[in-house]
Design a protein around this nucleic acid. Structure first.
Lengths: 146, 146
DNA sequence: CGGCGCGATCAAGCTAGCTTGAGGTTGAGA
DNA sequence: TCTCAACCTCAAGCTAGCTTGATCGCGCCG
């Protein structure tokens, strides 16, 4: 159990709760790296558990893989985030969340006005303002709107 | 200009700001209905402008087309929402938004704890709790996780 | 009554984030 | 040494919400 700092994909999957296929996908995307055995099987570092942990948390906060990729790429020579990195990153995540909450709150206020007037008018309704397009970023692709 | 309560798809598109293709798609989905001319062209009611207005607003509030479909289907014989309907519906939308805000707020609080401890531990991290899966519903399909 | 702009119908494509399947290889334990 | 779970590589599929393209038909204006 000495050289167990190197693990196969199945173990990594178990430890992170991710599907094997998802991990392979992340590798394709460049979120994580592996070395290969003689027989072409992936071997990961134990620290990758943490790295994928970060990925999952960031995802839960609403970041897309592309953004997560960027955050990870910003780390010195692609290391897995340590405590200090994490604090820095999570502070920036906090800002993201704050922004989302604010947007939603503004939307809610407008909706309240709307309940009052019941207008539903496309021209006048406050909910219908361009600036808030993509407002509460719903499911599915939204880019077309922007 | 008397019987202009019946309009072709292009006009409806212009008045709602939607693409013609989107409107056809909505019709396929059953969100809106049309009659056909002798030459098989769609004709819509002027009131459908309002109906699609509702669709767009609801979408901005983060509802998927399926949910919107349900709301619309709940109206007596598929009429377009009038002021009273709208007030009822928007109150229910408000609840949705409130829930989202709460979820995000809880997530933010947990993140704050995390900034303090910097643990990033998958077992212990508060951000990693099953109950909050799909937490801040990010982009892309999430159903697989649930 | 001729032209061309608007409309119609498929099928396929695109984004995000993966999963599933087919078909074949590796490698650790009995 | 043999076995079989675990691994490999593509390619294709799925959800959501549309768009794009190809190839047509309709209909209004002059």
């Amino acid at each position: 159990m000495n050289r167990n700092d190197i693990i196969p994909i199945g173990v990594l999957a178990q430890r992170t709760g991710l599907a094997v296929s998802a991990i392979r996908y992340y590798e394709d995307r460049g979120l994580i790296a592996s070395v290969r055995t003689g027989g072409n099987q992936r071997r990961f570092l134990r620290s990758d558990i943490r790295r994928l942990g970060f990925v999952q948390i960031a995802q839960k906060l609403g970041l897309g893989l592309a953004e997560i990729e960027r955050e990870l790429a910003a780390l010195p020579n692609g290391r897995t985030p340590n405590v200090l990195d994490w604090q820095r990153i999570s502070r920036s995540l906090r800002k993201e969340i704050d922004a989302r909450i604010q947007l939603l709150t503004r939307t809610r206020n407008k909706l309240d006005e709307c309940i009052g007037c019941g207008c539903l008018s496309l021209d006048r309704c406050a909910l219908y303002n361009k600036e808030d397009r993509a407002g509460a970023a719903g499911p599915g692709p939204r880019y077309v709107l922007d």
